[in-house]
Amino acid sequence: MLFVAGLLAVCAAAQVAVILAPTAGTIATVGAATTLLALATNVRLFRRFAAGTGRARVAWFFAGLASSGWTLACLLYVLDVVATGVPSVHIACIAIAIVLLSRSRLGGTTAVTVLTGGFAVFAGATLAYLWLGRHGWSWYVHSLPAGYGTASGLLHFAGRFHMPAVGEEPAVALGWRGALPYVPVAGAFAVAAAAYRTGAVDGVMLSALLLVAGLVLVRQYLVLRTNAQLLAEVNRQRAELAHQATHDDLTGLPNRALLYATLPSLQGGLVLLDLDGFKQVNDTLGHPAGDRVLVEAAGALRAAVRAGDLPARLGGDEFAVLLADVRDEREAVAVADRIIAGIVARVASSGCPVRVGASAGVVVRTPGLDDETMFRLADAALYRSKAAGKGRVELHVAA
């Protein structure tokens, strides 16, 4: 960290030096310091890549790869081998910054947001280069230390932040950010038109440039459409898994987990039911017939409960209903009686040769009655119902 801080200090000092004395020596010093800072950035980013896993590892690799492009450009500049390579890399950084910004969330600091800031500074420095160069000014004298020194520092310090995991970043850019990847393409159209008007390119070259830009737009549209379809499919599967986790596969009723999760907010009553004659169905007609009886019983349960009540299958031939806002115990018993009558009628009408009914135990929540005690009292009432001859409702009465 001291090494990087020292390089940043050199860049800052060189900013003043090259303005006051724009000599080859001061400019060379700036180039060397920036190159070393870019190399240090590469080391930091690829170390994070080596230590990362999964999606974060891939993200750090591409961040290091992008930084390597800048490092190469610095080396080429210092060696004075390919002068035109530097602006090309800078323009690529503009596109990278725009794409990163379109994919990052607004708010919070992550490696993505810091990397976006670094590439954005690169973009600003490149614009300064183009503008100052057009006016015949020495761009490196005026902008290199402040622009690329700051950008390299941001890329280096991005390694101190975490790369967002799956779910932290949106799969598809939202709002105005969704249009950001199209900005470089729109810029290509504008540059091609301006070059054609000034005679820098002929009609054939202009047509070729417009064709390439058009193909990029088509590809971007296809990618976004595919991503949207994949996201919709993922959301559908996620909703399906969430439903399976809280509902019974056979009957489609809410399961024990959902009932237990809802019970703490219950202010009404609880009905526990057990089918009478169900064992005989399984023993004489087989389990497929038993499954059909369970499905019919679940249908009767849904038809008999009121709006706001929660019917559920606890397992086997055991069912339950959470009664919302019962006025008194008589209302709770009336719902339980209606459920039992509905089960008897529906199973009989399905053609089952075995008479199937139900017994029920009912308890109404009173102040101080916790969930566990409520279940225990309803179960005790259900046991009394079966012991008294089945096909009836027993109500727990507070002592």
Rank of each mutant, 00 (worst) to 15 (best):
A298C: 10
G316D: 11
P353C: 02
S265D: 15
G308A: 11
A312L: 04
E318G: 08
K279A: 10
L259N: 06
D337G: 05
G299D: 15
D274H: 04
V293Q: 09
D317Q: 14
Q267S: 14
A304K: 07
A304F: 08
V335I: 12
A312C: 10
A289M: 07
R306G: 05
L275F: 02
D283V: 04
A358K: 03
V344A: 15
Y260W: 13
L263H: 10
A332H: 03
D309H: 01
F278N: 06
D283M: 01
P288L: 06
A345H: 12
H287E: 07
G315N: 11
L301E: 11
A334S: 15
K279V: 08
L263R: 05
R313G: 07
D328W: 00
A348R: 12
A261R: 09
P264Y: 00
A307H: 14
V363H: 02
V293D: 07
L258V: 05
T284V: 13
A348M: 09
P311M: 07
A289Q: 09
Q267H: 13
R355N: 13
G269K: 00
A360P: 10
G277D: 07
A297N: 09
G286R: 04
V321L: 10
F319D: 11
A332D: 02
A300E: 11
V281T: 04
R306H: 04
A303Q: 13
E296C: 11
V356M: 03
S265W: 05
G268T: 05
A297S: 10
R330W: 10
L258A: 12
L301M: 13
R302E: 13
T262Q: 14
L294C: 12
L270H: 02
Y260T: 13
A345N: 10
V356K: 01
L259T: 06
A261H: 09
T284M: 10
V344E: 15
A312D: 02
G357W: 03
Q267Y: 05
V354F: 11
A320N: 03
D337N: 13
L275P: 11
E318P: 07
D317E: 15
A289Y: 02
R330I: 13
F278R: 01
L272Y: 01
R327H: 14
A348C: 07
V335M: 00
R302G: 13
V305G: 06
L323I: 08
G290H: 00
L259K: 02
A297Y: 01
L270G: 09
V347C: 11
V326A: 01
A300L: 11
G315L: 08
G269W: 00
V362T: 06
N282Y: 00
L259V: 09
V347W: 00
L294P: 13
R313P: 10
Q280M: 13
T284G: 04
A298K: 03
